[in-house]
Computed example of a mutant assay.
Amino acid sequence: MFRIEAYTSESQIEHIDLILPIIQNQMEFIGSSKSLEQTKQALLNAMKPVSRAVLFIGYNESDAPISFAFGNVGVGLQAGDYFWLNEIHVDASCRRTGYASTFLSWIENWLKKKNIYYIATMTGEKNIASQKLFKKNGFDLDNIIWMDKELNQE
């Protein structure tokens, strides 16, 4: 079958070099092309000990990574701790099999065990497959306006 692991620090990640290609694949999909070394450094930075980041990796029966999700635990005045799901990616060979819903359900159960009862994410308006996945799994799809700003480094 498969197994899923949740990592809350870089020191816990088994065989980090084996998961980099699947992460890099997702980053390229969203328009952020980086080398494997740059991807590794970004992941190590995100998973540093002071972070509240979580990396979920799904492995197949051969222990090859087939999915990942990455996000951060935040705190809000309304809901207390919540989880912001930055990225989710399932290998093309596992799509349209129900695996993505199983993966997402496993993540939700892990979060509940950590007393996190609210999860949020976003996707592009043209990413219909992602919208269908989240809607199928009980997420509300709202119209929002995303605002961001890159701060200059001087």
Score class of each variant (00 low, 15 high):
F2M: 12
E5R: 14
E5N: 15
A6S: 09
T8Q: 10
T8M: 08
S9H: 15
Q12C: 08
E14T: 10
E14K: 14
H15M: 13
I16K: 12
I16G: 07
L18M: 12
I19F: 02
I19R: 00
I19E: 01
I19K: 00
L20P: 00
L20E: 03
I23A: 02
I23F: 04
Q24M: 05
E28F: 07
E28I: 14
F29C: 11
F29P: 05
I30F: 15
I30L: 15
I30H: 12
G31S: 03
S32W: 05
S32L: 12
S32D: 10
S33L: 14
S33E: 15
K34F: 10
L36R: 05
E37R: 09
Q38Y: 03
T39Y: 02
K40Y: 08
K40E: 14
K40G: 06
A42L: 14
L43E: 05
L43H: 04
N45P: 08
N45H: 13
N45W: 09
M47T: 06
M47N: 04
K48P: 09
P49E: 15
P49D: 15
V50G: 08
V50A: 15
S51Q: 07
S51K: 03
R52D: 12
R52S: 13
R52V: 04
A53G: 03
F56D: 04
G58W: 02
G58I: 06
G58L: 05
G58M: 06
G58Q: 05
Y59K: 11
Y59H: 13
N60I: 10
N60E: 07
E61T: 12
P65I: 06
P65Q: 04
F68W: 08
V73E: 01
V73Q: 01
V75D: 04
A79S: 04
D81Y: 03
Y82W: 07
Y82R: 02
Y82A: 02
Y82K: 00
F83I: 09
F83T: 03
I88N: 01
H89M: 15
V90M: 08
V90E: 04
D91S: 09
A92W: 05
C94A: 11
G98C: 10
Y99R: 04
Y99M: 13
Y99A: 06
A100H: 01
S101V: 11
T102A: 12
S105K: 14
W106P: 01
I107Q: 00
I107R: 00
N109A: 08
W110R: 06
W110F: 15
L111E: 01
K112D: 01
K113W: 03
K114R: 12
K114C: 08
Y117A: 01
M122G: 09
M122V: 11
M122Q: 15
T123N: 05
G124W: 04
G124T: 07
G124L: 08
G124M: 08
N127Y: 05
N127V: 08
A129F: 02
S130G: 10
S130A: 15
Q131L: 07
K132H: 13
K132W: 05
K132S: 13
K132F: 09
K132P: 01
K135Y: 09
K135S: 15
L141S: 10
L141M: 12
D142Y: 07
D142R: 11
N143D: 11
I144P: 00
I145E: 13
M147R: 11
M147L: 14
D148N: 14
D148I: 07
L151R: 13
L151N: 12
E154G: 13
